[in-house]
């Protein structure tokens, strides 16, 4: 009986953690899909080499505060990013900042 309960418990734990990790993976993919739109001006994975600042590998906190400044119209130099950042929640902007911070620089 104890063995059966233990087995059951182990199975439930395994399934739960697998489910949680699958959720995490799903959320990670969601961020990757959101981030893919940024490539059109900043290069694939943010590794652009053009006039626009390369964003890959920059510190997440700096990227996040910049994105939030764009969103809340507090960035004097904005041209289009103010218009774009407003289309994302603060959580999404943080996830995008983390995503690009984790991309290797060119």
């Amino acid at each position: 009986m104890i063995m059966r309960s233990l087995l059951l418990l182990t199975t439930v734990l395994a399934l739960t953690s697998q489910g949680a990790l699958a959720d995490e993976r799903q959320a990670e993919r969601q961020t990757a899909l959101l981030a893919s739109s940024c490539a059109n001006c900043h290069g694939t994975d943010g590794r652009g080499t053009m006039t626009l600042a390369a964003i890959a590998g920059r510190p997440a906190s700096i990227l996040e505060s910049q994105l939030l400044a764009f969103k809340h119209d507090e960035s004097a130099g904005a041209t289009v990013m103010d218009r774009i950042a407003q289309g994302y929640s603060d959580d999404e902007l943080k996830a995008l900042a983390d995503y690009f911070a984790n991309q290797p620089e060119l």
Partner: peptide, 18 residues
């Protein structure tokens, strides 16, 4: 769970997931 926590999912977690 928030997306922000998952975006920083480390390489070791990826391996674990696999």
């Amino acid at each position: 769970m928030t997306r922000s926590t998952t975006a920083s999912l480390s390489a070791s977690r990826r391996t674990l997931l696999k």
